[in-house]
Amino acid sequence: MKVIIVEDEILASENLSYMLKEINSDIEILAVLDSVKSSIKYLEKGNNADLIFMDIHLADGTSFEIFEQVKIKTPLIFTTAYDQYAIKAFKLNSIDYILKPIDEEELENAINKYLELAEVSIPADNIQLENVLKLLNSEKKSFKSTFLVQSRDELIPLKISEIAYFYIEVGIIKAITLDNKSFIINEKLESIVEDIDTSKFYRVNRQFVVNREAVLKIKFYFNGKLVLKTTPPFKEQIIVSKAKATEFKNWMNN
């Protein structure tokens, strides 16, 4: 499979390239393009890519501006940190979307979705993409601020800003607060991630979502992985995979 990556953040493009190779070593990355201008220059000559991964915000504008200059018939997978309304629209106009920070499982699912549809012609629709751009400009993300949780015989509103981390224990989602109180959240972890501010919370692995404010130290682990020291401390090691390590450090640094 031949792919093109349109991404202006070096660490993000390197991380995506690494994860693609981990998923399928036969994937060939034809080009990494970091701007609207360079993308237009490359794509207007035609391309033989099977799939394009495209970020929304680029150094010199939005990737939708590319479609004003170039007719692209190659299937697209958007990588985006935009709100849920825009994401729903993306799903109508592309193979799939991946919400940043990129999760390796979601990336693999998106690739599998492309492979299932590989025999179907999926041209990009410039008019629809323009409508999505309007939606991006008009909608602002509204993040959830509280979870209604049970404490003994009462229901109390738990502020998300007070949660240090979420984790899965025997199929149950638990939230631990910064002052080390534990509550059960009656939602799936995927739903929680969609509703909270991902500039403040990061899903470090399939079982764990951590608040930036709860991270005290980041220790290097073997094989390129990281181990987090948090407050309050967790009973087990919180490990960030090698595939996510660079992106996590970049997220913490922003």
Rank of each mutant, 00 (worst) to 15 (best):
Met1Gln: 03
Met1Gly: 12
Ile5Gly: 03
Ile5Arg: 01
Asp8Gln: 05
Ile10Phe: 11
Glu14His: 11
Tyr18Asn: 01
Tyr18Val: 01
Lys21Phe: 03
Lys21His: 09
Ile23Val: 15
Ile23Thr: 10
Ile23Lys: 02
Asn24Gln: 02
Val32Glu: 02
Ser35Met: 04
Tyr42Gly: 04
Glu44Thr: 06
Gln69Phe: 12
Val70Leu: 08
Val70Gly: 06
Pro75Phe: 06
Ile77Val: 13
Asp83Asn: 15
Asp83Phe: 10
Ile87Tyr: 00
Ile87Cys: 12
Phe90Cys: 11
Ser94Gln: 03
Ser94Leu: 04
Ile95Lys: 03
Tyr97Asp: 07
Lys100Ile: 10
Ile102Ala: 02
Glu105Ala: 11
Glu106Ile: 04
Glu108Asp: 08
Glu108Val: 03
Ala110Lys: 01
Asn112Ile: 00
Glu116Arg: 12
Ala118Lys: 15
Ser121Lys: 12
Pro123Met: 04
Asp125Pro: 02
Asn126Met: 07
Ile127Glu: 15
Asn131Gln: 15
Lys134Leu: 13
Leu135Tyr: 07
Asn137Ser: 12
Phe143Asp: 00
Thr146Asn: 13
Asp153Cys: 12
Leu155Met: 14
Leu155Cys: 06
Leu158Trp: 06
Ile160Cys: 09
Ser161Asp: 09
Tyr167Gln: 14
Tyr167Val: 00
Ile168Lys: 07
Gly171Gln: 06
Ile172Met: 08
Thr177Asn: 00
Asp179Leu: 10
Ile184Asn: 08
Glu190Gln: 10
Phe201Tyr: 08
Tyr202Thr: 10
Val204Leu: 06
Asn211Ile: 09
Arg212Asp: 12
Glu213Val: 04
Leu216Thr: 02
Leu216Gln: 06
Lys219Gln: 15
Leu228Gly: 12
Leu228Tyr: 13
Pro233Met: 04
Pro233Thr: 09
Ile238Arg: 07
Ile239Gly: 09
Val240Trp: 05
Ser241Trp: 08
Lys244Val: 02
Glu247Gly: 08
Glu247Asn: 14
Asn250Leu: 05
Met252Asp: 02
